[in-house]
Design a protein around this nucleic acid. Structure first.
Length: 310
RNA sequence: GCCGAGGUAGCUCAGUCGGUAGAGCAGGGGACUGAAAAUCCCCGUGUCGGCAGUUCAAUUCUGUCCCUCGGCA
């Protein structure tokens, strides 16, 4: 049995200061930063998705930021497959992998693994999407109840996305998705210290508002304009990110800039709320306040104690 | 000043042929196994603009006043 790779995870809601803390850890452990945020992967949106700046990236290696084109889609599984060799490489170089991000599903998939479901052929997915339009969600959910009663019982009949996922797995493999879940092994390859940046929504809101202004001042609009030139399809995966979608609506004259900013803030806030809900229930997270000026130092101390205690 | 249209939840608005009212959004809580910055679930008492009248009963009808928005002056 191979020993588990030690790593440090930095989690928390958007805009709470994870990037800054990660840089401090990376400099002093020493370590390298690996992204687990589903949006900071887009090449065309470095500012709007708050990726580390070129100056920050120059300080130490950063992985899985800004590598994906706007019309490409990343999935939890694909992200995990990219992450694993990178984390192993960092560890073999004698450094500590520092995982930073805000996408709860990606983190869980990485730490606990994901069921091994084969790739679903595009035709299967497209056919189901057509059937959704023709037959309605109720009919598809009823089919899921036949095909995978266990999964159907767990999801809500209105949950379009999960109903389609359950059906596409069954149609493509002949086996229920819940069967794949049951067969999954619980072993993890990593021994992770979970460090959380704690912030409540009320405190976070003004920071998020200021960050939007700062992004615009730093050329967010120009960034969106350029991205639009490269990928003018508003339904492309990269455009569905918060900030991107609102600025695109402004560029296409569907919103004024003020309306776009208001919506942007509102959506960012709602997103932060979902992140807080997700991370709150995670066990064994060591929390530090976002407003603690010594947060990077405290997190570094905890990381050092964790690594020396192994 | 006159004519018209309105004033109902934090916002946008439904509605009650008279029996004290409900959607969307916002807000709060939650779920989450390859779209996850996604997808979805639960949570709705508010002088129904003020005052008076009619009525067993008015947010609903009538009068009047106030305010907002159009048009005409």
């Amino acid at each position: 049995m191979t020993s588990k790779i030690p790593c440090v995870v930095l989690l928390g809601p958007t805009g709470a200061g994870k990037t800054r803390a990660a840089l401090h850890l990376a400099c002093h452990l020493p370590g390298e930063v690996v992204n687990f945020d589903s949006r900071q992967v887009y090449r065309d949106f470095p500012r709007i998705t708050a990726q580390p700046t070129p100056e920050e990236v120059a300080v130490c290696p950063h992985w899985l930021y800004g590598f994906l084109a706007t019309d490409r889609k990343l999935t939890a599984g694909a992200h995990v497959r990219k992450c694993r060799p990178i984390i192993r490489g960092i560890s073999e170089r004698g450094k500590t992998p520092i995982l930073v991000g805000g996408t709860g599903l990606y983190l869980r998939a990485l730490l606990e693994g994901l069921a091994e479901v084969p790739e679903i052929p595009r035709e299967v997915t497209m056919l189901l999407e057509q059937q959704l339009v023709l037959e309605g969600l109720d009919a598809l959910y009823a089919r899921l109840q036949e095909a995978d009663p266990e999964l159907a019982a767990r999801i809500h009949p209105n949950d379009k996305q999960r109903t389609l996922r359950g059906l596409e797995v069954f149609e493509a493999t002949g086996k229920p998705l819940s069967w794949f879940h049951g067969k999954q092994e619980a072993a993890s390859d990593y021994r992770a210290l979970l460090l959380g940046v704690q912030a409540d929504l009320h405190a976070l809101e003004p920071l998020l508002a200021r960050r939007i202004d700062a992004m615009l001042a730093a050329g967010a609009l120009e960034e969106a304009r350029k991205a639009y030139g490269r990928c003018p399809d508003p339904t492309a995966p990269g455009w569905t990110g918060i900030g991107c979608a609102e600025l695109l609506a402004f560029l296409e004259s569907r919103l004024t800039l003020d309306e776009a900013k208001t919506l942007w803030l509102r959506n960012t806030r709602a997103y932060a709320k979902r992140q807080l809900t997700w991370f709150r229930k995670m066990p064994d997270v060591v929390w530090c306040g976002y407003d603690d000026p010594l947060l990077p130092e405290k997190m570094l101390d905890k990381a050092k104690a964790f690594l020396s205690g192994l």
